[in-house]
């Protein structure tokens, strides 16, 4: 990423805040969905990691809550051009969930309740960059924001932070997801303004 200076773009009128190119600052939390909001009863909710060998690791809602959680404060950048800074979450790091998973995969395809998918390199889920988040701003995560739990991977555009997350499939070959097959950029780095294919 070294070519582009992070400090150079998009100084907002809101003060001395640095935003990725083409983004504007918002203080509310717009809701954008590709379909109806799935309602998943917690007793039936589960999160899975499936390896390229077909091995399935499974967590119930109770299992997830029992894992050590963290409270990241992160900036969100939506491809529809709004950015929201300093959002407070609680969830489990993917480093914890993937710690005992044996894999040679380089890619991940994230699946949601309701059928949504999104892809990203596995390394973007590791090293404190991604969480399964179940609380926002001190409250249980509302269904319209992806509750009971969503992926949070804030260094990429928000469509990668799959709402209503159900599982992660680890893959040897990249497999584009719901928007990535329909014109959105395969990687989606907001600081390089990777909105559409070819950006």
């Amino acid at each position: 990423m070294g070519i582009i200076s992070r400090g150079f773009h998009g100084r907002s009128r809101d003060g001395d805040v640095k935003l990725p190119p083409g983004q504007y600052l918002t203080h509310d939390f717009p809701v954008l969905s590709a379909g109806p909001t799935p309602r998943v009863p917690l007793e039936r909710w589960e999160f899975t990691v499936t390896t390229e060998a077909g091995q399935v690791h499974r967590w119930s809602w109770q299992d997830i809550l029992a894992l050590p959680s963290v409270t990241p404060t992160v900036d969100l950048h939506c491809v529809t051009k709004w950015s929201k800074l300093g959002t407070n979450w609680q969830g489990v790091s993917l480093d914890v969930l993937l710690a005992d998973v044996e894999t040679a995969a380089d890619y991940a395809l994230v699946h949601s309740y309701g059928g949504y998918t999104t892809n990203l390199p596995l390394e973007d889920l590791l090293d404190g960059q991604a969480w399964i988040a179940y609380r926002y701003d001190g409250e249980d995560l509302m269904p319209e924001h992806g509750g009971p739990a969503r992926l949070l991977v804030p260094h990429l555009y928000l469509w990668k932070s799959a709402k209503w997350v159900r599982g992660i499939q680890l893959l040897l070959e990249d497999e584009p997801g719901f928007w990535e097959t329909a014109g959105y950029h395969n990687y989606g780095d907001p600081w390089r303004e990777q909105r559409y294919q070819g950006d």
Partner: peptide, 23 residues
Amino acid sequence: VYGSAEAMVGRCPGCEEVMMRLV
């Protein structure tokens, strides 16, 4: 039809599956 002006999803009124994506 769900989504934004930049990215629209057209779903079947019968089964709610995706019939059209327009970016």
